[in-house]
């Protein structure tokens, strides 16, 4: 299969930048005003993350799990799959992530956040805040999409994956947290490659989120 190495990244791209942009614009128009609810729920999760507790953490995992399956169906399957033949193979991973979040995060849960601020907690929280409050703006205005093209947490995959990485990066115990990071990290790498092939200026953002999450996860815990 040495022939594979003769392909460029762009050879695997099967849609144009205008189709990718319009994907988000039409999606947001169809869902409006669900964006407000998603942002409000994201704000609620942030509130719970700032006051770590077992019940709150379970609620966070449930909300995240529901968001992953919602994005799998409404965005990936219904909107993205018709123009990207790889998506039918990726969408089941989002469902798997839902099961992991609900399973590892709620059943006899020992998943928790550190009580005190530390480098991992700071990095993880930064990732979550970025996904919630900054990502919609950087996907809307530096591009030609406008606000209707914003990628909102809970409704689109990139901010959801980055937010999940942030939470998993600071959570304990490590064994469960690592499992929760696999699918979001994989999606961020896929998304980064897609954006790179589209020559999008912010293609480095999703892989950077993976890098930050890995640093946080590997940072020595006391």
């Amino acid at each position: 299969m040495s022939e594979w190495w003769t392909y460029r990244l762009g050879d695997f791209l099967m849609f144009s930048p205008r189709v990718y942009e319009r994907l988000f614009v039409l999606y947001n128009q169809a869902l409006w005003p669900a964006q407000l609810l998603a942002l409000a729920l994201g704000g609620a999760i942030l509130f719970l993350l700032l006051r770590p507790g077992n019940t709150g953490m379970r609620l966070v995992m449930v909300l995240l799990g529901l968001a992953w399956v919602f994005v799998a169906w409404t965005f990936l399957w219904q909107r993205y799959a018709p123009v990207n033949l790889m998506i039918p193979y990726v969408a089941p991973l989002f469902v798997l992530q839902t099961l992991l979040l609900l399973g590892l995060g709620t059943l006899k849960s020992k998943l928790n956040l550190p009580a005190h601020w530390s480098v991992p907690r700071s990095l993880g929280s930064t990732l979550f805040v970025y996904a919630l409050a900054v990502h919609p703006w950087v996907t809307a205005f530096p591009t030609s999409r406008g606000l209707w093209g914003a990628e909102v947490i809970g409704l689109t995959p990139d901010p959801l994956a980055i937010a999940t990485l942030g939470i998993a990066a600071m959570a304990n115990p490590a064994s469960k947290a690592w499992l929760l990071m696999v699918v979001p990290a994989l999606w961020c790498l896929i998304s980064g490659l897609t954006l790179l092939a589209l020559q999008a200026p912010l293609a480095w953002l999703p892989p950077l989120a993976v890098g930050m999450a890995l640093v946080a996860r590997l940072w020595p815990r006391r």
């Binding site: 791209l13 099967m14 849609f15 144009s16 189709v19 319009r22 994907l23 039409l26 909107r79 018709p82 123009v83």
Partner: peptide
């Protein structure tokens, strides 16, 4: 690529 526009 050019005609892969989904149902837009």
């Amino acid at each position: 690529i050019t005609f892969n526009v989904g149902d837009d």
